[in-house]
Write a protein that binds this DNA or RNA. Structure first.
Lengths: 126, 126
DNA sequence: TAAACAATGTGATATTTTCTTACATGAATG
DNA sequence: CATTCATGTAAGAAAATATCACATTGTTTA
């Protein structure tokens, strides 16, 4: 459902609303933004505008903090999530060609013998 | 789905957001409220706060106006809709008892012969 | 046709909300 | 014990919104 995701990512909420929805102070919300955990948009007057997804993430952050995880930990969690998502996106965007598959299989066989060099093979692979 | 309806009726949007979402001026939105077509909530500082349902209704109003229907007409439309909804709510709240059903059936049979009096039967129906 | 009405624009002024920046603070941590 | 982390708080500026009044432009109506 693409339209739903679009609606959830629409930046339509001012910080006052988000404070109530997430039960967080403005200071906390701005601090989490400063730490890169959320990226609310800005309107023409420089006011932060949040989406429902932002609210969800803030609630998540709150849970993590309640569980004793600190900013660094939460950052790492989101960094890994993003990395995984990026990999999946890449896989979807550029499915392997036959040539890729053949080269990968070739390299796998080479690696079996523990012969792999740090900079990659010094010989032509095909 | 009860939760969805709840979310759509949450008053979380300031008028500036609603102006963009519905492509209406603040003057228009306030005027439609003055006419009783919408009833946005107010926050602690007297600012109007709108729900997604409010936005939907504003878009509807816009369509009606574009179709040449004036305020009075739109008011009437919503009055009738509300009346119908009230009836349905009442019907749901007080489902028919067996006795109701028997009386209704009884009356139906009476009506078949075209014998029904204007003020209803003058005789006991059960 | 003049007057009235309907729907909206515009301007003034007050209040509320949000912004940034800076400093304060208690708890955890090395 | 000195730092760092996460948050509170205060000040001053800028933006958003409120109400109220008057203006404008079509459309009815007497």
């Amino acid at each position: 459902m693409k339209e739903k995701e679009l609606r959830r990512s629409l930046a339509v909420l001012p910080i006052g609303t988000v404070m109530k929805l997430a039960s967080l102070s403005a200071r906390q919300i701005r601090y989490y933004e400063e730490q890169g955990l959320i990226q609310p948009e800005r309107n023409a007057g420089n006011r932060r505008m949040f989406s429902l997804n932002d609210v969800d993430r803030l609630l998540e952050i709150k849970d993590y903090l309640a569980d004793g995880i600190n900013m660094a930990g939460i950052k790492e969690i989101y960094a890994q999530q993003q990395q995984k998502a990026a990999q999946q996106a890449e896989a979807l965007a550029q499915p392997l060609t036959d040539i890729d598959v053949r080269r990968i299989l070739h390299d796998e066989f080479l690696n079996i013998g523990g012969l792999k060099t740090k900079d990659g093979p010094e010989y032509p692979t095909h």
